[in-house]
Design a protein around this nucleic acid. Structure first.
Lengths: 229, 229
DNA sequence: CGTGCAGTTGAGCAAATTCAACGCTTGTGG
DNA sequence: CCACAAGCGTTGAATTTGCTCAACTGCACG
């Protein structure tokens, strides 16, 4: 078990610049309210949004781009807990501090919402509270599916990952992956070599097509689903 | 990759017998309210509480004993998503159906609460809604920790499992495991043989002591934590 | 006292990792 | 515009880890 240093910070991170604020929103409509309550923050790629154990005073929503939540073990291994795509909430906590770090994957914009505002909102608007709870359960479901992935063989993990990304992508069978092989490996608990090898195997079996390393077409979803379940 | 048949149902399951009902509860105190709103159901060991894809009309709380949430893959492999101990809520859903099956591990009592009652409660009592949300985030946290486990080596998984169970147990360093080796294996994504071997290795290194197969003493938590992080 | 089940132990094997080399793309400076 | 370095991704060979299969032990129960 070898040590891998955490990914080098390559680009400078920018502080929030634009701020949009308003108190008016339609009751019982959480996501719109969050947009109005929040501050939009643009980031370059590989920028830390918050670190593990830092105070969790804000919740976040992805506007554009993509975000990874991860933890780094004492020996340098990194485990990615989740990828967050546009529309996803992340950074939800009940304790005082964040339990994961979060970084942008590509150039991204996130909306930061003061935690106290959300709590206040849910106090006066139970329907918004219910929606926040729903989003959290959905996140829980995703996390459980993630855990289900990790007990399987490498081809099964890759298949499930591709199907998950395809489901979350707007377009149909062509998936544009925002993340690197290392990110995928750390999400699936594999090495980059195994990820790479497995993808080429799937291509040789005409199950997927690799247009480029970040663009993948699912030619045979049925075969992928067979590896799944 | 070999097929393992799902565990045989060994004992007959009983329907709910006792029912306690009341509407009075202190506002802003969720767990007490749930006890009052719910119906207590006693079960033998290895009894199904609900199955995957069954309607999710009830949420549940463990009163005594222990419960496992799991899914069975098409080839018979079983993945245990979580163990639920006394006080834990489980079966939370936003969709119409359950995404996991749930079974008692030993002889157990669970409290079933109508989902619609909880939704109604949180609508008139935002503080109860907040507490439900908190419990859900805590469950999410546990699921993420579980996923973090599964990328590690066998000794690390076992160590993390033991620490988790010790944290959740009332007594200090002596842990009483309610579940079998097969349950542990399916929770950690290992085989029973690997679980067994790893436990004996830990004992040889004087890190744990195996009083019986279900009773384990943590002699050296520091060493276990070193495997962890 | 035998039967059956849960758990342990051992030997061989398969899958994924490690280590190493190589190719392709991109960006930079001459 | 080209040369070259740096990153990222792919491929190959050797090694390690955990799995499979099989035998065996201990304990509970009839």
């Amino acid at each position: 078990m070898l040590i891998r240093t955490a990914m080098a910070r390559t680009s400078s991170c920018q502080p929030p610049i634009g701020a949009r604020r308003s108190m008016a929103h339609r009751p019982g409509e959480l996501t719109g309210a969050l947009n109005l309550m929040g501050v939009s923050m643009p980031f370059n790629r590989d920028c830390e949004i918050y670190g593990e154990n830092e105070p969790a005073d804000y919740f976040y929503k992805v506007a554009t781009g993509a975000v990874r939540s991860y933890r780094v073990l004492h020996d340098g291994r990194r485990q990615i807990a989740a990828f967050h795509l546009p529309g996803d909430l992340f950074g939800l906590e009940v304790g005082k501090t964040h339990t994961c770090s979060a970084e942008t994957i590509g150039c991204s914009a996130v909306i930061a919402i003061k935690r106290s505002s959300i709590v206040a909102l849910t106090r006066r608007d139970p329907e918004a509270g219910r929606q926040l709870w729903e989003l959290t359960v959905r996140e829980l479901r995703r996390s459980q599916n993630h855990a289900m992935l990790l007990i399987r063989s490498a081809p099964e993990r890759i298949a499930a990952f591709l199907l998950e990304m395809a489901d979350r992508s707007p377009d149909g069978d062509a998936v544009e992956l925002p993340m690197s092989r290392q990110d995928i490996a750390d999400y699936l608990g594999l090495t980059i070599e195994t990820v790479s090898r497995t993808l080429t195997h799937l291509e040789q079996e005409r199950i997927i097509e690799l247009l480029s390393s970040r663009r993948i077409v699912l030619c045979n979803r049925r075969a992928l689903r067979l590896l799944n379940t």
